[in-house]
Amino acid sequence: MHGRFSVPRSPQGHPVLIQAGDSAEGRDFAAATADAIFTLHGSYDAGRDFYADVKGRAVRHGRRPEDLLVLPGATFVLGDTDADAADRAVEVRRAQVGPQTAIAFLEQIWGRDLSGYDADGPLPAIDPDVDNVSITRGRVRHARDPRTVAQEWRDLAAAKGGLSIRETVIEATSRTSFIGSARTVAAELDRYVQGDACDGFILIPHLTPGGLDAFADTVVPELQDRGSLRTEYTGTTLRENLGLRPTARPATDTTRRTSA
């Protein structure tokens, strides 16, 4: 392809580049190119490992560690107290994994029609159909041997005293979530950032459109009190607000500007 571009240089030159993809190729692409990585490495320890890995890759590409931000996706549940939040989190998980959804998750692993099973009953005794991996299409799949996953789920159900299908799915598919009072959640988010498990988060609320309201009203002031979050926007572009270096302006363009 070749030709002239029809839009003048925009305020940022090019958009802030975020990358989501976890293979070695994906990490390397991000390390060489991106301004931020969106990752699912959520726990504190896994986060620290991932952080060290990709920042190291960035340095090997001749960049500074701070040129690449690590932003894990994270969910959260708030309450007036930590106990209140924990109760709510249980309700949220049950809403996220209804009986039909539990069976659908199971079918994804087992590769079979399990619609005859009761979500409140035990896991199926039959083994996964390993040849039927395309039962779900159009979503990102993380390829693991279904038999391994099925065994893990059975072990999990047994270890917790005989979980039902739905309870097992709730346990097995839960991701890192920050659960607690606003103060607890703020402290925990900040611990991750200050401890180099990440540079921040892409927060995933569970309600449209009000899922962020309580966070903005209660957690944000706590983070501001800790000195970890701005109290006003200081940059004029996203790139500036993220503390990233400006994009290079080509030499030819600079000449033009000075002569203009």
């Binding site: 030709g3 002239r4 571009f5 029809s6 839009v7 003048p8």
Partner: peptide, 16 residues
């Protein structure tokens, strides 16, 4: 349109 800017310096070039 995708028509790229031409050579005529007397014309407005480009569009969003």
């Amino acid at each position: 349109s995708f028509v790229p800017p031409g050579d005529d310096p007397g014309l407005v070039r480009g569009a969003l």
